[in-house]
């Protein structure tokens, strides 16, 4: 069970959180033109790297905040957790 530092609540066990997928995927802006290709890339394509992965988690059984984690997908080492608005 991973031990995750919620940027709002501190260290908590994984069972308080829900995974939210690749955080490098940016939704195209609303009400703006976007090509079919860019849209499909957003909806379907994922890099799924082995190694460092920036991803969303949601503290569902806690503060209910979404936040970002940089984690190694082969060792599960967590390098850093960030608020959504923070960059690496």
């Amino acid at each position: 069970m991973l031990f995750i530092k919620c940027p709002y609540c501190g260290d908590r066990s994984q069972n308080e959180f829900a995974y939210g997928g690749d955080a490098t995927v940016k939704r195209p802006e609303i009400n703006k033109e976007v090509s079919d290709k860019d849209w499909d890339n957003f909806v379907y394509l994922r890099k799924s790297p082995r190694g460092k992965h920036l991803e969303f988690w949601h503290h569902v059984s806690g503060c209910r905040q979404w936040f970002k984690i940089q984690r190694d997908t082969s060792t599960h080492e967590i390098f850093k957790t960030f608020k959504v608005t923070e960059e690496i």
Binding site: G21, D22, N41, Y44, L45, R46, K47, S48, P49, R50
Partner: peptide, 17 residues
């Protein structure tokens, strides 16, 4: 391991591991 080799091919796929 598909995504690892896809990266070497500059391809991004509708796949997660």
């Amino acid at each position: 391991s598909t995504s690892i080799l896809a990266e070497k091919l500059n391809m991004t796929l509708p796949i997660e591991t």
